[in-house]
């Protein structure tokens, strides 16, 4: 999937601007990292790509394989293959993980899925993520730790087989072991599906030891201000975001 985010400006209900002429082109199979301080608009970007109802697009476009996806609803964009691994996945009472995932899979593939085949596939995913098999019959994320929630997101990704994966703060809430397991699963998915585009959002560079990006972008105040490779992330690790500029992509003090 080729995605071009073009000059996107987004506000919330009160008119506050959160994304400000944001542009980014993501080629099939590429791995992009967006880093940026808290509150700069990273999660907003990830939700806007899936038409979250709380955000208004003031100008700009999102083009997927040549067509604007702005007219498409959230579920239609998902069925195109865009997947968001949430920063803070919600919990839902009364709906089991397996019921939810099976419905999602049926709707995504538009095919009836044999219950047995589905259960086997889900069990395999659960094992690969070192999760408790009993989670299948528990309600969505109910009484799950932060780490278990993140694993559940990756489980859904593995089953729904998206083409464009947004990982919003994948590392938050994960201990060292879980982070390793989750990243292994992401890498394995990417290996098996090399055309998958990954947009990794983080404000800690630590995760980049596991997932190796092609491009590193720095975001501030709703737009990208700097682009580089892994060395940019390393620089941020040392110096923080203060070294990056907020206006027009120019560097201070040079």
């Amino acid at each position: 999937m080729q995605m071009n985010i073009e000059d996107l400006t987004v506000t919330v209900a009160e008119g506050k601007k959160i994304l400000d002429h944001f542009s980014l082109a993501l080629a099939p199979g590429s791995i992009h990292v967006i880093m940026g301080p808290n509150g700069c608009g990273k999660s907003t970007l990830s939700k806007v790509l899936l038409a979250h109802p709380h955000y208004n697009i003031v100008s700009g476009d999102i083009i997927v394989d040549g067509n604007s996806i702005l007219p498409l609803s959230t579920d239609a964009r998902s069925r195109l293959g865009i997947f968001l691994c949430y920063q803070n996945p919600i919990s839902v009472d009364g709906v089991t993980n397996s019921e939810f995932l099976r419905t999602a899979l049926t709707e995504t593939t538009q095919e009836r899925i044999n219950v047995y085949t589905f259960m086997k596939a889900m069990e395999k995913g659960i094992e690969e993520l070192s999760m408790d098999p009993a989670m299948m019959h528990r309600f969505i994320n109910q009484d799950f730790s932060g780490g278990e929630r993140k694993k559940n997101e990756i489980l859904q990704m593995k089953m729904l087989k998206p083409k464009f994966v947004i990982l919003d703060e994948l590392d938050s809430g994960l201990d060292v072991d879980s982070l390793r397991i989750v990243c292994q699963n992401v890498n394995q998915y990417k290996e098996e599906n090399p055309d998958t585009t990954i947009l990794l959002i983080t404000h800690y560079p630590r995760i980049l030891e596991y997932i190796h990006p092609d491009y590193v972008h720095v975001m501030r105040d709703g737009k990208l201000v700097e682009m580089g490779d892994l060395s940019l992330a390393q620089k941020i690790e040392k110096e923080g975001y203060l070294g990056t500029t907020s206006m027009g992509g120019e560097h201070h003090g040079e």
Binding site: K47, L50, P53, T74, D75, S78, L84, A104
Partner: peptide, 14 residues
Amino acid sequence: DENLFYFMSRGIDK
């Protein structure tokens, strides 16, 4: 909205 968005973002219609 958050619950609906979660479900719909997994391909499930409204």
